[in-house]
């Protein structure tokens, strides 16, 4: 395998992981805040649904995505007919699959950091004249930042490793949807020493990326941990 092909695989994986984090972050923050701060009927069920991707076989998620977001699926056909958007068998689809798989990890991390904020600090801000929105932006968000960073990195790393949902939903198209894990899988399916060496190289790259992500998370949360 030449360098260009390797760079292309790594680049695609990074792009997919990065976009999946951006995609899930806003919703994850809202859901994490709601779960941390409010009690409402059906909260247990809602919580279970949020955590579903953690326990379901990834293939099932991928298949569900294919059924709903595929060209003939109810949402997929609407997207295509109204906006001309197709996500199935595209890298955008891979990002969506990764976002869903990493979602519970992200929600969990943010939720924990919101729960660690003393409710009365928000009350103090309210009595100082801050609207609920200002409390959220200038108190909750900065104090939950370490959790947001941790959650994002966890979800990013989860995306880099995403396999089952991705291959089911967007298949394994080199240059289109073939992320690092899919490329490793492909290499292991080809007989011969050359393919094996290629699989080892790709695996080493995956290890390096994961370690780098962890280190970055550690550094970032230390840098922004305002509570310590």
């Amino acid at each position: 395998m030449d360098n260009d092909a390797l760079l292309q695989i790594v680049g695609l994986s990074m792009k997919v992981a990065f976009c999946s984090v951006l995609l899930s972050l806003p919703l994850a923050m809202i859901i994490a805040y709601v779960l941390a701060r409010y009690d409402f009927p059906g909260k247990t069920i809602f919580d279970a649904i949020v955590h579903l991707p953690l326990v379901l076989p990834p293939v099932v998620i991928g298949f569900a995505l294919l059924l709903t977001l595929g060209r003939n699926g109810p949402i997929g056909s609407l997207l295509h007919d109204w906006f001309g958007i197709v996500v199935a068998f595209k890298w955008t689809g891979a990002a969506i699959a990764s976002a869903i798989m990493g979602f519970p990890l992200m929600v969990r991390a943010i939720r924990l950091s919101v729960m660690a904020i003393d409710r009365r600090i928000e009350h103090a801000a309210r009595t100082l004249g801050a609207s609920p929105l200002r409390v959220l932006v200038s108190v909750v968000l900065p104090l939950a930042l370490p959790g947001i960073i941790t959650g994002s990195v966890l979800s990013f790393a989860r995306s880099l490793g995403e396999f089952g949902a991705t291959i089911t939903f967007v298949s394994n198209i080199p240059g289109q949807t073939q992320t690092l894990p899919l490329a490793i899988y492909t290499a292991t399916q080809v007989p011969g020493d050359e393919a094996q060496i290629q699989a080892i190289w790709l695996s080493l790259v995956a290890v390096a990326l994961s370690v780098a992500a962890l280190a970055a998370s550690e550094w970032l949360s230390r840098r922004y941990n305002t509570n310590a």
Binding site: I121, A124, T127, L143, T226
Partner: peptide, 12 residues
């Protein structure tokens, strides 16, 4: 103006 028991300053 409400002063809470432990002060509760904004730590950030």
């Amino acid at each position: 103006g409400y002063v809470f028991q432990q002060g509760l300053l904004f730590p950030h």
